[in-house]
Amino acid sequence: MNNSSLERARKIRTAGIYAFFIIGSIVMIFPFVWMLLTSFKTVEESMMVPPTILPAAWQLKNFTDAMASLPFGALYKNTLLMIFWRVVCAVVFSSMAGYAFAKLNFKGKDLLFSIVLVQQMLPSQIFITPQYQMLAKVGLTNSIFGLVFPGLVSAFGTFFMRQAYLGIPNEIAEAAYLDGCNQWQSFVKVMAPLTTASMAALAVFTAVFAYGDLMWPLIVNTDLNLMTLSSGLATLRGQFSTNFPVMMAGSLLAMIPMVVLYLFFQKQFIEGVAMTGGK
C-alpha cells in the first residue's frame, strides 16, 4: 500500500517534469517556427487578422528580396573568416601563454599575469573607441583584419588554458625533458595534445561569441560588403522596417549555418560552454 502510493507520487512527479519541459520547449522553439512560417508568407498575408498559421503558398520571394538587398555571400564569408581567425588566434596564443604561465619559471611572471587578470575584469566596451581610432589611423577599418582585431589575443583564453595546464602533472613535462625535448618541443609534442578538450571548448566559446558580436562589427566595418551577418541584419532592419517576412527570411539565412552546426555538434557546443564556465 505504502509502496504503491510512493510509486504513484513518483509517476505524478515525472508527469509534472514532462509537462514543464514540454511547455518550456514550446516557448523556446515557437519563435523560430514563427520566423520560419512568416518567412514564406507575403507581406499582405503576414498582416492578416486573424493571422494564418501556415503560409497560403510557400513562396521564396522574401529570400530573394533579402539576398538582393544584402550580399549574403560576402556576409557568410566575412563572418566565417572573422570566426576562423579569432578562434585560431585565441587557441594558439592562449595555449602558448597558458602553458608558460602554468609550467615555466621566469622573472616577472606574476606581474605579467596580472595584466591578463585586469583585462578580464574590464568590460570590452572600455577598449572600443581607442581600438577603433587605432585602426582608423592606419586605414584598416572596413577590412577582415578590422573584424578580427579585438580578438587577436584572449585574456580569458589565457586564463582558461592556464587552468588546463595546471591540471597536468609536472612529471609528464619532466619526462619529456629527460627524453631530450626542449621547452617548446615538450609543449607542442607532449603537453598541448593533452589539452585538446580545453582547446575545443575555447574554440566553441570564441566562435559563439564572435558570431553574436554586434557592436564592434557595426563600428569598424560600415561597407556593406565587409559586414558580418549580425551587422548586416541590423542594416536590413533599417531598410525593411515594416516588411517582417523579408526580415524573417534574412534572420533565417543568418542563423542557419550556426544552427546546423549546432544540430550536429550539440554535445560539444553545450559542454564546451559549460567547461568555460561563467565568463
Binding site: G24, S25, M28, I29, P31, F32, W34, M35, T38, S46, M47, M48, V49, P51, V208, Y211, G212, L214, L229, S230, S231, L233, A234, R237, F244, M247, M248, G250, S251, L252, A254, M255, M258, V259, L261, Y262, Q266, F269, I270, V273
Partner: peptide
C-alpha cells in the same frame, strides 16, 4: 539542447523575431 538553442543564434536575429512577435498591430 532546446533550452540552449538561443545561445547559438545571433542576438540580432533573436531580436528580429521577437520584434515581430511583439508587433502591436500584427
Amino acid at each position: 539542447a532546446v533550452f540552449f538553442l538561443p545561445m547559438v543564434v545571433a542576438p540580432a536575429a533573436v531580436a528580429m523575431v521577437w520584434k515581430w512577435i511583439f508587433n502591436t498591430e500584427y
